[in-house]
């Protein structure tokens, strides 16, 4: 006979397989091939797969970049693709840390009823909101970071309303931007920080960083709860500097 611990171990192993599969595949969202969806299919089908192992590295010690992202200048236009987002993040991060991308995702931006008229394909060529996830290493520690930029009508404080949010506060910055910041300790020795900035133009910059495999933090018993270093690679103050950077 077994006990519930063995069942839990089986669940954890299946969790691990799910995470491994998510890192190497697949469409994030697949629309049904219905007539009604055809007008928006071009938008949704373009959702990118998750590309594992595609990485650029920004060494923190030598200053010699491997696959250095293209230089960017200050701009108000939000990144349109995961590659754009990676390049922009590289400019913001500078040489203070190493970021190895493990997932590039493009998420549909709006629900169908908010799409342009049926039959009209968006002309801006942007098929989704870019999101990237990767491993971040700095002098402070090693962990994972998830970053997404998107346009939205929602408020950053909504991230504070999630059950997982702890110690989350929202402030208004001098330029009118709204900034939500939060910290949580999902397990002993684990820490996760959230920073979500909504700029006056409606652009939201969302970053989760932790010292675990899951940027949002995870239970210790989960494979994604593995602790990579004693400290997060970014402090809350550094995270705030990053989301409020004028280099986005």
């Amino acid at each position: 006979m077994s006990d519930l611990r063995t069942l839990h171990d089986a669940f954890a192993e299946l969790d691990r397989r799910a995470d491994a599969a998510a890192a190497r595949t697949a469409p994030v969202v697949r629309p049904r091939r219905t007539v009604r969806l055809v007008p928006v299919a071009a938008t949704v089908v373009a959702v990118a797969g998750l590309v594992a192992g595609a990485a650029w590295l920004v060494p923190s010690d030598s200053g010699t970049h491997t696959a250095t992202p293209p230089a960017t200048s200050s701009t108000t236009r939000a990144p349109a693709s995961p590659d754009d987002l990676i390049a922009r993040f590289g400019a913001v991060l500078g040489d203070t840390a190493t970021f190895e991308v493990t997932q590039r995702i493009s998420v549909p931006r709006t629900s169908p009823s908010r799409q342009p008229e049926p039959g009209v394909t968006p002309l801006d060529g942007q098929d989704g909101s870019p999101m990237v996830v990767g491993t971040l290493t700095s002098a402070d520690g090693r962990g994972t970071l998830g970053l997404m930029i998107y346009s939205t009508d929602s408020e950053p404080g909504e991230w504070c309303n999630l059950p997982r949010a702890e110690n989350c506060t929202v402030t208004t910055l001098p330029d009118g931007s709204r900034l939500a910041t939060g910290t949580r300790q999902p397990a002993p020795g684990a820490v996760s920080y959230l920073a979500c900035l909504k700029r006056p133009d409606g652009t939201m910059i969302l970053i989760n960083v932790s010292n675990q495999d899951d940027p949002s933090g995870a239970a210790a018993t989960s494979p994604a709860g593995r602790i990579l270093s004693p400290q997060s690679p970014l402090t809350p103050d550094r995270l705030k500097e990053i989301v409020t950077s004028d280099k986005w």
């Binding site: 299946l14 995702i105 709006t110 969302l206």
Partner: peptide, 21 residues
Amino acid sequence: MEFTEYVARQRPALMRFATVL
């Protein structure tokens, strides 16, 4: 919460749940 945010937040959990299932 917008769909974009939901997917970003919950897809990993859904994948794990579906894999266990």
